[in-house]
Computed example of a mutant assay.
Amino acid sequence: MTPPRRRLAIAAATLTLAVLSTACGAVGQAVDCNTAASEASKIASEWSSAMSSDPTNTEALGKASKTAADKTKDLAAKYDGDVAAALNDMAAGFQTMEKGDLNSVTEFSSKMQGFTTKITAACS
């Protein structure tokens, strides 16, 4: 390489490294958010499956809700800021179902979308 080409190559490599280093934080956050949203969705799905397998069993509702709340709290502990807050809100929602109140299952199920929306909003 001639000296001007070498300088251009070094400049291009430096610029590329700077751009990738700057974007890395945003990419890392996006990956973390996707993981958080995916895990939260999995917890909600497991809870829904437990409810649909025996929808009249108050004990099963309480147990599934406690398990979901604990898993969501554990997940929230891995994050900070708005993502953690959204996950903690979701955990609190599951905790309200630990009493086994079958009458509030439908209402809570509709709130589940709101929790998911909060998590997604925290990631954007």
Rank of each mutant, 00 (worst) to 15 (best):
M1P: 12
T2W: 11
P4I: 12
R5C: 05
R5I: 08
R7N: 00
L8G: 11
A9D: 09
I10S: 00
I10K: 04
A11E: 06
A11R: 03
A11W: 05
A12V: 06
A13T: 14
A13P: 06
T14K: 04
T16G: 07
T16L: 15
T16F: 02
T16A: 15
V19E: 08
L20D: 05
L20S: 08
S21Q: 10
T22D: 14
T22P: 09
A23M: 11
A26E: 00
V27G: 15
G28W: 05
G28L: 15
Q29G: 11
A30I: 09
A30P: 03
V31L: 15
V31K: 10
D32S: 15
D32G: 08
C33R: 05
C33A: 15
T35F: 13
A36Y: 02
A37W: 10
A37N: 06
S38G: 12
S38P: 00
S38Q: 04
E39C: 03
A40N: 12
S41K: 02
I43F: 09
A44F: 01
A44Q: 10
E46C: 01
E46T: 10
W47V: 04
S48T: 01
A50Y: 13
A50K: 06
S52M: 12
S52K: 13
S53W: 06
S53H: 00
S53I: 14
D54G: 05
P55H: 07
T56F: 13
N57D: 14
N57E: 04
E59L: 09
E59W: 03
E59C: 09
E59M: 07
L61P: 01
K63H: 08
A64H: 11
S65Y: 07
S65M: 07
K66D: 02
K66L: 00
T67I: 09
A68T: 09
A68D: 15
A69K: 14
A69Y: 02
D70T: 12
K71G: 06
T72Y: 04
K73F: 10
D74S: 14
L75T: 04
L75A: 10
L75E: 07
A76S: 07
A76R: 12
A77K: 15
A77T: 02
D80N: 13
D80M: 14
G81S: 03
G81I: 00
D82H: 11
V83H: 12
V83G: 05
A86E: 08
L87K: 13
D89I: 06
D89Y: 02
M90W: 10
A91Y: 07
A91P: 02
A92Q: 06
A92K: 04
A92E: 08
A92M: 11
Q95A: 13
Q95M: 00
Q95V: 13
T96W: 03
T96F: 11
M97P: 11
M97E: 14
E98D: 09
G100P: 07
D101Q: 01
D101M: 11
D101R: 04
D101P: 00
L102P: 00
L102G: 09
N103T: 06
V105M: 08
V105W: 01
T106Q: 13
T106M: 05
T106R: 12
E107Y: 08
E107R: 05
S110V: 00
S110P: 00
S110N: 12
M112F: 02
G114P: 03
T116E: 05
T116M: 11
T116D: 05
K118P: 10
K118N: 00
K118A: 04
K118I: 03
I119N: 08
I119D: 13
T120V: 10
A122H: 13
